Simulated assay, not measured.
Amino acid sequence: MPDTLRAPRPGTPAEVDSFRPNAARMYDYYLGGTNHLAADREAADALLEAVPAVALAARQNRDFLSRVVQFALREGITQFLDLGSGYASPGGVADAALAGGPGVRVVAVDIEPGVVTQVQTLARTSGWAGQVGALHADICDVAGILGHPVTRRMIDLDRPVAILCLAVLHFVPGPLDRVLGPLRRTVAPGSLLAVSHGAATPTPAGRTRTEGAARPAGPTRPAGPSPASISRLIYDCTLTPLTLRSEHDIRAALGECGLVEPGLVPVARWRMPESAPPPAFAGLVGGVSRL
């Protein structure tokens, strides 16, 4: 088994719309990958010009992913259901989890067919076919995912599983419980739910920039669009528009009673060494809940 996951650039499946940006390919671009097209780069560059912290958020989320997987392995969990997995790359879930040994199983789920094709190809060519599987599905179809032959073959739902929803739930409109509720009711006790999510940034007044803060007295220059507004505008061009939520709503979706310490925090702060310098907040909060 190679030390790291080296992802070849896949061909573009016929069903992919190469003229429309795609969130999974844009995320791969933020991380310096190669699984993106001209439309993705154009949209991503426009967002990075307006909101440079997006690239930092992607890197922080990747580091958070690694710490979450290591935590799950230390808890004795060797099954991983990666919802909205994105393209496989060095440092991704399969790369981090398979270090746990031959008994580890990973199922990657994504709505982007190119992701599924790439992961399936990597599983065959890397000799990981018995450990890594992939299926093409909308994460809102929880019943279809849990009942899929790939999931049933690789994941034993009578044993604890780590469910990863990393930087994906902000592409789910409406109540998050329509995704997380069926998962909670189905998986075995002792399972873990890990979430990272784009959050509206709190202002000193305690409101959020998306809600708007009170303007100071005196003449002011006209305010331009907020980073949240620009992000939503750009992702509206994809098939998966962006829905930012308050930290209160994200915490409620995770289930506050079962939150692992340190709770819901900026992803760069989750279980980081105390000696590490305070990280910049790049817009993602995350946490892990016991189910």
Rank of each mutant, 00 (worst) to 15 (best):
P2F: 04
L5F: 14
L5P: 01
P10W: 14
G11A: 15
A14S: 14
A14C: 12
D17V: 09
D17I: 08
S18L: 12
F19K: 09
R20A: 15
N22G: 07
Y27Q: 04
D28A: 05
G33H: 03
H36V: 04
L37K: 09
A38Y: 03
E42V: 15
A43L: 07
A46S: 14
L47S: 13
P52V: 02
A53E: 11
V54L: 15
A55F: 02
A58V: 04
R59I: 05
Q60H: 14
F64D: 01
S66I: 06
V68N: 02
F71G: 05
A72Y: 06
L73P: 07
G76P: 05
G76N: 11
Q79L: 07
D82R: 05
G84Q: 01
S85L: 11
P90Q: 12
G92M: 07
V93G: 03
A97V: 01
L98A: 03
A99E: 12
G101I: 08
V104D: 04
R105M: 04
V106E: 02
V106Q: 07
V107K: 01
I111W: 00
V115H: 01
Q118D: 08
Q120C: 11
Q120F: 02
L122K: 07
L122E: 03
A123W: 02
A123I: 07
S126P: 00
G127W: 06
V132S: 04
A134M: 08
A134S: 12
C140V: 14
L146T: 05
L146K: 02
L146I: 12
V150H: 00
I155D: 00
I155C: 00
R159W: 06
R159T: 15
A162N: 08
A162D: 01
L166F: 10
A167F: 06
A167C: 14
V168P: 02
H170E: 12
L180H: 02
L183A: 14
A188Q: 13
P189F: 11
G190T: 08
L192W: 05
T201S: 12
P202H: 08
G206M: 06
T208L: 14
R209F: 13
E211S: 15
G212S: 11
P216C: 10
A217L: 14
G218Q: 09
T220S: 15
R221K: 09
P222W: 07
A223T: 10
P227Y: 07
P227H: 08
A228G: 13
S229Y: 13
S229C: 14
L233I: 01
T240F: 12
P241D: 09
L242Y: 09
L242V: 05
E247Q: 15
H248A: 15
D249G: 10
I250P: 03
L254E: 02
L259A: 10
G263F: 04
V267G: 06
R269Y: 03
W270D: 03
W270K: 09
A276N: 09
P278C: 12
A282D: 03
G287P: 02
R290P: 00
L291D: 05
